[in-house]
Design a protein around this nucleic acid. Structure first.
Length: 678
DNA sequence: CTAGGGTTAG
């Protein structure tokens, strides 16, 4: 679209400055709808803008231009510029009129009574922010530029940018940004926050980082929301240590006072880092700081407990939620149905599901999918099939998850033909099977002794260019192995090394998990040198494997590469690396790592601290043992009993029994004291 | 007057 491209990048269209603008008319709308799928795979700056400009250009825009020009001239001749009319205009009426237009001419006609600067910028920003359609919002921006002849403000551009990003029009987002700059508007924290967030939401982390760097280059200082975004970005990249580091550092240096949303994000981060105690304590910390935990806070923690099979904790948290009268919403219900299902409280799950409507909460597709799975796991196949047909009869929307769940249920009830039919049914209804569908059906066919069918499907997938992920690959390998076709399984693993259809990150993970360490490392080195390894979990996976294989030098090598690309080690990695340093007798490096992570504000589970204590013990550095022990003992979130146990053991191992008994008695003393207090 | 948080399938 022209409004987002400069004349410089669009030389074919240069006639006059204003002629480079046009709104995509209804006649080209079909073209626009098909664009996103093409765009989403292309890196943001790779495609020349004029391609899009041409595609979206309205064929009769020149006529439109002339007409508008005439209108403008007429207006200028006959009317004196009136004052702002905001107060006399019903914004909703304007919006409704705009919504009913389907091309630029109609939109300009609707806006024509307000030409010539009759609306304040405030009004226009407000109007823009309520306009959900990105194309119409761009057209409004154009109208402001052309007809009303006043420069849209930075905030006007920001809200349009938000709409464009929401619609995943990355090209136009870039173009809009350029246009802002050309108009002499300096992007502010809202602009950058919007860009960073929307790109990271889509997993386009490179672009996200690009905008972060731009922001730093512009010396825009961060505020609460921006740091919140950075934490969220680290969380999305599964770099929880970095997220915790940002949170703790900002809090300590008073860069921000966390609000409800930052706290909720951090509950998620701590939980993902498996620091459940810290996550739980955060709810208390919020209260202490005058931030009331809300439904999000509780449901976040609930979901984390479920992810880690901590159902007792989940049930007790749900009880607390009810106690403090925290409102329960749809997501909470979905999580709780899952919980009841997983602890085999089927009656409760069922009751919860059917009672939701009475609570005024309408179940959605996730709810249905969850209860279907609960029925399946409880082997209530009849109920599942019944509910599924009810969904179809009542027109409740179904998605790929619904079908995958039902396919798996038919697999459990050993009805592989019905499962197979479902794949055809979903395709005929326009729901495309995905990697999960295929791996489910491959397992089902393998169990039914129809391995040839599975192999044929797998071959078809590979040749048709369908994205094959690691689980799907693994499923086929396991299917071969189970059928005793070890040679086939080996061939697949071998082919994985030069498979184009599988990402190298996927290949590394599969090879490593299959015990093919040398191959995994070979692919890893290749991929790393090519800059292809970005996912923190790949580093974690390799370090894990090498550690198990006692290849400590390799552990250190991968760890160094991981730090090179800016990842923070998670607690598992840090434990393995500390161990590796210890085994290689590189105590200074272990100590340096531990201290650095501590200074960066990372929080680790007790085990990591205990390991460092252990390393000091191995080095016979009892001064450091004692000093770290004192530090940890005064630390709030650490199991004091275990700490004393660990330290006493270190002394015992070293034959320093006096010190050991000193630690023991100190612990006993404390225990008595705490009982006394209670 | 614009920006940030939680749920389902192998």
């Amino acid at each position: 679209m022209c409004s987002v491209s400069s004349n410089a990048t669009c030389p074919t269209l240069v006639t006059s400055p204003s002629s480079s603008r046009s709104f995509p008319c209804s006649s080209v709308k079909t073209t626009i709808v098909t664009l996103p799928t093409t765009i989403s795979n292309i890196s943001v700056s790779a495609t020349p803008k004029h391609v899009w400009t041409r595609t979206l250009r309205s064929p009769n825009s020149n006529t439109n231009k002339q007409q508008r020009q005439q209108r403008r001239t007429r207006t200028r001749q006959h009317h004196h510029k009136p004052p702002y009319l905001d107060r006399n205009i019903n914004m909703n009426e304007v919006l409704t009129s705009i919504a009913q237009t389907n091309n630029i001419e109609q939109l300009y006609a609707v806006m024509s009574p307000y030409n010539e600067r009759q609306l304040s910028i405030r009004f226009m920003v407000s109007l823009l922010s309520r306009e959900p359609d990105w194309q119409r919002s761009i057209a409004l921006l154009d109208w402001m530029n052309e007809e009303a002849q006043y420069s849209p403000s930075l905030s006007a551009y920001n809200v349009v940018l938000r709409n464009v990003l929401r619609a995943k029009q990355w090209q136009f987002a870039h173009g809009l940004f350029d246009e802002m700059r050309q108009k002499g508007l300096s992007p502010d924290k809202y602009t950058y926050s919007t860009l960073i967030t929307y790109f990271s939401k889509q997993g386009l982390f490179d672009s996200s980082f690009f905008w972060l760097q731009q922001m730093e280059r512009d010396r825009i200082s961060g505020d609460l929301v921006l740091y919140s975004n950075l934490i969220e970005l680290s969380r999305k990249m599964c770099d929880y240590s970095k997220a915790i580091s940002i949170f703790n550092t900002c809090k300590a240096s008073a860069k921000f006072v966390p609000d409800l949303i930052v706290y909720n994000t951090m509950i998620s981060v701590f939980g993902k880092a498996k620091l459940f105690q810290e996550a739980r304590l955060l709810i208390q910390e919020m209260r202490d700081n005058g931030v009331s935990p809300n439904t999000f806070s509780y449901s976040t923690l609930l979901a984390l407990y479920v992810d880690n099979q901590k159902f007792v904790e989940a049930l007790s948290l749900f009880a607390e939620m009810n106690e403090v009268k925290c409102p329960i919403d749809l997501t909470t219900c979905n999580i709780m149905i899952d919980v009841y299902g997983q602890v085999q409280m089927i009656k409760e799950a069922d009751g919860f599901f059917w009672g939701m409507t009475k609570m005024g909460i309408e179940p959605n597709v996730v709810t249905y999918n969850t209860i279907l799975r609960v029925y399946g796991e409880a082997e209530l196949f009849g109920e599942a099939v019944h509910l599924f047909s009810l969904m179809q009869r009542k027109g409740i929307p179904q998605n790929v998850v619904t079908y995958n769940t039902m396919i798996s249920i038919y697999g459990k009830s050993l009805e592989d033909e019905k499962a197979t039919n479902l794949i055809q049914e979903m395709q005929s209804r326009g729901i495309q099977p995905n990697a999960i569908t295929y791996s489910t059906i491959i397992s089902i066919w393998e169990k039914a002794g129809k391995l040839d069918r599975a192999a044929m499907l797998f071959h078809k997938l590979r040749t048709s260019g369908v994205k094959i992920d690691e689980v799907l690959y693994q499923t086929m390998i396991v299917a071969y192995q189970k059928a005793g076709l070890v040679a086939h399984a080996k061939r697949l693993l071998h082919e994985l090394k030069q498979e184009d259809n599988v990402s190298r990150e996927t290949a590394i993970t599969i090879l490593a998990k299959a015990g093919k360490i040398d191959e995994a490392m070979w692919v890893f080195r290749q991929a790393f040198d090519a800059g292809e390894v970005k996912d923190i979990s790949v580093f974690g996976c390799i370090i894990d494997i090498f550690s198990r294989d006692r290849e400590y030098a390799h552990v250190v090598e991968v760890f160094e590469k991981m730090r090179e690309v800016g990842h923070f080690p998670d607690s598992n990695v840090i434990a393995l690396v500390l161990n590796a340093f210890g085994k290689l007798r590189k105590f200074e490096r272990a100590e340096a790592l531990y201290k650095q992570m501590y200074e960066e504000g990372c929080v680790f589970p007790d085990e990591v601290h205990f390991q460092m204590l252990g390393l000091y013990g191995v080095r016979m550095d009892f001064k450091m043992v004692e000093s770290l022990f004192e530090k940890l003992d005064s630390h709030l979130n650490i199991n004091k009993k275990e700490l004393h146990f660990v330290v006493a053991n270190i002394y015992e191992k070293a034959g320093r029994f006096n010190d050991a008994s000193r630690i023991w008695s100190r612990m006993n003393h404390k225990t008595i004291k705490s009982y006394g207090n209670a």
